[in-house]
Design a protein around this nucleic acid. Structure first.
Length: 416
DNA sequence: TCTGGGGTCCTTTTCCTT
DNA sequence: TCTGAAGGAAAAGGACCC
């Protein structure tokens, strides 16, 4: 998201106190509120496709959700098809089942686990509720996804008391009273340290970090704990014998720049020394809007042309609807695909006038598709629109005139 | 029987213009 | 007219995050 406004407290006479709040096992906790009878049982949430798309329903039985008998819940062992686990309860994790694991593998490890479909609408409802609670207390809040936020405590009444602990406690209690959900909060001089601090005590914990805590609390941690260092960067650092943040801090800035590039090297050095001036950004505009789907089985551009065409058209229509609903049009239209062997490719093309029209997206995305090798079977196809501009409601998006008469359906044959 | 979907941001490459 | 350098925009890929 591109920042449009920022609450900058750099010139404040008060010391900066930034909180990072992370909801505890968010999806699983929301599901357990709905189905308290699953408390303590191995439950995985995931799939999101076909077999497990059917939400447990009370239709027919007339029972309230919390009285649905355990025998009526689908089990992992009954699942067939593709999909991964989005999250798992602690009881399920005890079997070695975890996020991002394939459902088939998970079924072998814990066949009796209950499988629930992902219900993003419900999680978003809870997300709005807990964020409303926060902004009622501390208005400078940055949205970092469905279950995470940064909050600038600096100017909030009580935000400086006990380094932020008093306000953190108030927010934690208010969220629990309003939603029944717990969260963990870290408060520190900046976002980088606050994010790490929120991991210290989970679940339902509060951690306060000051600048003086850098050496004893932060430096012993693995580099991977820095938000932005993933598996690749971690491996590169390890190759140089750098495993902890302290070891990273010990390397001269110039050495890091020399080995990791100007921007990354400087950032690594600053991060290791706990320096981060990024403001808490309260509003932002999307950079891109996309839709993608993994097929039930791998599809071939020639043999499965009709099916692929239907999916492709549907993706363009979904993106167009998303654009219209959110009030954006875009100039850069692209496709993404993943081959059966999991290699990927992207192509995009920028057009003269921003559009939110499905037929235009379909035509330009189709041209992108022509530029990519299609001998191998595909497992995923996606459509993306970037270079977004806001569209005033009612004004209508600018559309390429040449395409407005082109039917959305039926153009597939020429694509392959 | 591995490996989702929706994003952001950064780096490198390529292409076009001056 | 040709060539090369420089710079910017677009394209492609990849890392990372939730």
């Amino acid at each position: 998201m591109a920042a449009v406004t920022a609450a900058n407290t750099a010139n404040s006479p008060l010391p900066r106190r930034i909180a990072h709040l992370d909801m505890d096992a968010f999806y699983a906790s929301v599901e357990l509120l709905r189905y308290p009878q699953l408390q303590g049982l191995p439950v995985v949430i995931g799939g999101g496709r076909r077999d497990c798309d059917q939400r447990i329903t009370t239709e027919g039985s007339g029972l309230p959700l919390h009285e649905i008998p355990l025998a009526d819940f689908p089990r992992l062992q009954d699942y067939t098809g593709r999909g991964v686990i989005t999250t798992a309860t602690y009881a399920a994790r005890a079997f070695g089942v975890g996020s991002a694991m394939g459902l088939m593998k998970a079924a072998r490890l814990c066949p009796q686990a209950i499988l629930l479909p992902v219900d993003f609408d419900e999680y978003r409802r809870y997300s709005r509720r807990f964020k409303q609670v926060i902004t009622d207390i501390a208005p400078v809040m940055e949205d970092r996804g469905v279950d995470e936020v940064y909050i600038d405590f600096t100017q909030v009444a009580g935000g400086q008391r006990e380094g932020g602990r008093v306000l953190a406690r108030l927010i934690q209690k208010s969220i629990f009273d309003a939603t029944g959900l717990t969260c963990s909060i870290g408060v520190a001089p900046n976002k980088l340290l606050a994010k790490m601090a929120s991991e210290f005590r989970k679940p339902n914990g509060i951690s306060i970090v000051h600048e003086a805590d850098l050496q004893p609390l932060i430096w012993p941690l693995a580099c991977r704990k820095i938000n932005g260092i993933g598996p690749k960067a971690d491996a590169r650092l390890a190759a140089h014998g750098i495993h902890t943040i302290g070891e990273l801090a010990a390397r001269p800035r110039d050495w890091l720049v020399q080995h990791f590039g100007k921007a990354t090297g400087a950032w690594l050095h600053a991060a290791a020394w706990g320096r981060d001036e990024r403001p808490v950004v309260t509003e932002s505009e999307p950079v891109s809007i996309s839709r993608e789907t993994t097929f039930e089985r791998d599809l071939h551009a020639v043999h499965d042309r009709a099916e692929l065409g239907r999916i492709f058209t549907a993706l363009c229509e979904q993106v167009a609807q998303d654009l219209q609903r959110k009030g954006y049009a875009g100039r850069t239209i692209g496709i993404k695909l993943r081959y059966a062997d999991f290699r990927g490719a992207t192509r995009d093309q920028t057009i003269a006038q921003a559009t939110q029209d499905a037929a235009v997206l379909r035509r330009v995305a189709g041209q992108c598709l022509k530029r990519v090798p299609l001998q191998q079977r595909l497992r995923l196809l996606g459509v993306r629109v970037a270079s977004l501009v806001p569209v005033v409601a009612g004004a209508g998006a600018q559309q390429a005139p040449a395409c407005s008469t082109e039917p959305v359906q039926g153009g597939m044959l020429e694509l392959f």
